[in-house]
Design a binder for these strands. Structure first.
Length: 171
DNA sequence: ACCCCGATCGTA
DNA sequence: ACGATCGGGGTT
């Protein structure tokens, strides 16, 4: 018996960010030899969202968020950890989904909670920034029919934009 | 050149 | 509760 994986196409990421975030729950993140089920995400939406890096406008760092959906946005946080995001919506509208935790199931089994720990374990760094996840077969997200139930909460670790319930976590 | 800040995490 | 550690972005 064979199995095939479908890479999520750009159209998956071009929807509004809250829907993309929820839809990413249960999908399979592949990076190099690592495979994990996405368990927790957060949405960062546009220049009006004070917690979104793009609230500062178009800069060398945020330009990827202003680009096409489906690209990786990886940045260094607190001088020692990296965070992985996937760009959403249309070019010109800066938004992304932060991948906060995954259930790693291959080649090792481990629950990676926290965006910094996730990137450290998978060896995702700024070198993996601005990669087209709809084209790469080494860094992508696979389709899955799983539709996990989830809870919505404020985003973690931010000082502004706490009123928005834009964190989605599989129950 | 200088300063402040931060989508984190491990330790206490 | 707090420090580690450094790049981004604004200011001088």
């Amino acid at each position: 018996m064979t199995s095939s994986y479908t890479i999520l196409p750009r159209s998956f990421y071009e929807l509004n960010t809250l829907d993309v975030a929820k839809n990413l729950l249960g999908k399979i993140l592949k990076f190099s030899e690592h495979y994990g089920i996405i368990h927790e995400v957060e949405a960062y939406i546009g220049q009006e969202d004070p917690a979104c890096h793009a609230a500062k406008g178009f800069t060398k760092r945020t330009k990827v968020m202003f680009g096409d959906a489906g690209f990786s946005y990886v940045y260094l946080i607190y001088g020692m950890y990296h965070c992985l995001n996937i760009v959403t919506e249309t070019a010109g509208f800066p938004a992304a989904v932060l991948i906060r935790s995954i259930n790693l199931y291959s080649p090792t089994v481990m629950y990676l909670n926290g965006p910094g720990k996730l990137c450290k374990k998978l060896h995702i760094t700024r070198k993996n920034n601005q990669i087209d996840l709809t084209k790469s077969h080494d860094f992508c997200v696979y389709y899955s029919t799983v539709k996990p139930k989830y809870i919505s909460t404020p985003r973690i670790g931010i000082k502004v934009g706490k009123d928005k319930l834009w964190r989605f976590k599989t129950i």
